[in-house]
Design a protein around this nucleic acid. Structure first.
Length: 481
DNA sequence: ATGTTC
């Protein structure tokens, strides 16, 4: 793997254009400016990430600006929170670093047909059941044992749709999934043998780090009409699932970064950081990555579908409660979308890395019952803190994108030095939050103080005109790797 | 994020 990272350069010229919007003036090969939506407070110590915004602005075919969301922080090549669109017909590139290692990492929210008071007597049994039913942590293990590579290929092509066809969900679920539960352009031939091997045993598993399954309660509704359209109300119990494509997506990213790093020179592409490896979307290497990435996207969706199904079985058995899907959306993905550029419709490759698509009300790709409210945007908070449901807004900037969550401000090592897992568990249980961790070390690494304040991220996103708040949720129970 | 450094 190329070992990149920006070298120190002269300071960037960053101008506050208006509240929650900063502009990075073009220089040093930048083809477009940088535009960062954030507060001054959220940009504290963001120098490295701003340099990454500037680096992304040098990519061939980039249009508009190199954008970053309020939860911007340092990532591989692109900043996490980065959004960049390239013009496919004008030699625009696709870059695996613009998607990230956890391809199609995302969030799914289910709403229970009960409120927190009704669940209370069964909560401990539900949490115990979830603790047994939800595979998690590093390495293999998943709720679904795939028959072999042929069935893996059906998952890679069919995503949530295939999982539902096999009995792991309801037909209605697919109406509430981005892209109906599967993207169409998966090319399984571009998924290498190691990725396949790693993917075989992990369908239906959370993974580790900031991934979680939480039982939550809606503690505040900001937009009653949108909340009603989404099927949530104050006091209602929900289940939020945050996970991605596990080792399969990680391996695909590694494989295709390597291939592009080797091929780039042939296309005459130079980038200021090897981690920005890319080739034109319309090239053999570009098409190969896009096809493999789409396969990983479907894998991640099937993963969330299977975990939903596992949670449903536990809720039905332990509490007689039914879970309906609110929405499922990714925050690490590149998609070919049509957007207006200088008044002309253009086919763009929109990279969203730690950024969520946020279609406005009336968008034709939204299901009819969500058309008036706009697309639900699901923001997972840090363990033990609040999560949010947002909605897309008219005129949303950055190709209809908004934030994805709280960014880390403390390293795992640093975090684990501030508290033991045992202490943190006691603190959470004391606050009325049931915890079912796999590892105490892993729990300590996710101490809330290791992250930015998700409420500030959401405020800045709304203040920047990228989305609006619909509801706030707080955890009743956490299942973690 | 990740068979947490091929």
């Amino acid at each position: 793997m190329p070992d990149g990272g920006y070298r120190e350069r002269v300071d960037l010229d960053v101008v506050e254009e208006r509240p929650y919007r900063f502009r990075v003036e073009p220089r040093d090969g930048m083809r477009v400016p940088g535009v960062v939506f954030a507060s001054r407070e959220l940009l504290r110590d963001a120098e490295q990430s701003l340099r990454q915004v500037a680096g992304v602005a040098t990519l061939p075919g980039i249009v508009g600006a190199s954008y970053a969301m309020p939860d911007i922080h340092w990532g591989y090549g692109f900043p996490i929170g980065g959004v960049a669109a390239t013009d496919v017909a004008a030699g625009g590139v696709v870059s695996p670093g613009g998607v990230g290692f956890d391809i199609s990492c995302g969030v799914r929210l289910l709403a229970a047909d009960c409120d927190r008071r009704a669940l209370r007597p069964a909560l401990a049994a539900v949490m115990d059941g979830l603790g047994r039913a939800v595979p998690r942590g590093a390495g293999p293990g998943g709720v679904w044992r795939l028959g072999g590579t042929a069935e893996l290929e059906r998952v890679l092509r069919g995503g949530s749709r295939y999982a539902v066809e096999q009995g792991h969900g309801e037909e209605r679920d697919l109406l509430r999934c981005e892209d109906g539960g599967a993207v169409a352009d998966a090319d399984v031939d571009q998924v290498g043998p190691r990725a396949r091997e790693r993917g075989l045993g992990q369908v239906g598993s959370l993974g580790s780090a900031n991934h979680f399954l939480e039982v939550q309660v809606v503690t505040e509704v900001y937009d009653t009409a949108a909340a009603e359209a989404f099927g949530i109300a104050a006091g209602q119990v929900c289940v939020m699932i945050h996970c991605g494509s596990r080792g399969l997506g990680h391996q695909i990213c590694s494989d295709h970064v390597r291939a592009m790093d080797r091929a780039m020179a042939r296309y005459g592409i130079e980038v200021p950081d090897r981690q920005l490896a890319c080739t034109p979307v319309d090239s053999p290497e570009g098409r190969a990555y896009v096809g493999a990435m789409a396969a990983a996207a479907n894998y991640a969706r099937a993963n969330r579908q299977l975990l939903s199904h596992a949670a449903r079985r536990v809720f039905r058995r332990e509490a007689g409660v039914r879970l309906g899907l609110v929405y499922d959306v990714s925050h690490n993905l590149a998609k070919i979308e049509t957007h207006s550029v200088d008044g002309e419709p253009r086919r763009l490759c929109v990279h969203r890395k730690g950024a969520t698509r946020a279609f406005p009300p009336g968008h034709p790709d939204l299901p009819a019952d969500l058309r008036d409210a706009g697309q639900p945007v699901l923001i997972p908070g840090t363990m033990g803190t609040a999560s949010y449901v947002l909605a897309g807004v008219p005129g949303g900037d950055a190709f209809h994108s908004t934030c994805h969550g709280a960014g880390r401000v403390m390293s795992r090592h640093q975090a684990a030095r501030t508290v033991t897992g045992k202490e943190l568990r006691a603190r959470l249980e004391g606050a009325g939050i049931a915890v079912r961790p796999l590892s105490m070390r892993g729990l300590a690494e996710e101490v809330p103080e290791a992250y930015k304040d998700v409420a500030a991220v959401v405020e800045a996103s709304e203040g920047a005109g990228l989305c609006r708040k619909v509801a706030r949720l707080e955890p009743l129970g956490v299942v973690k790797g």
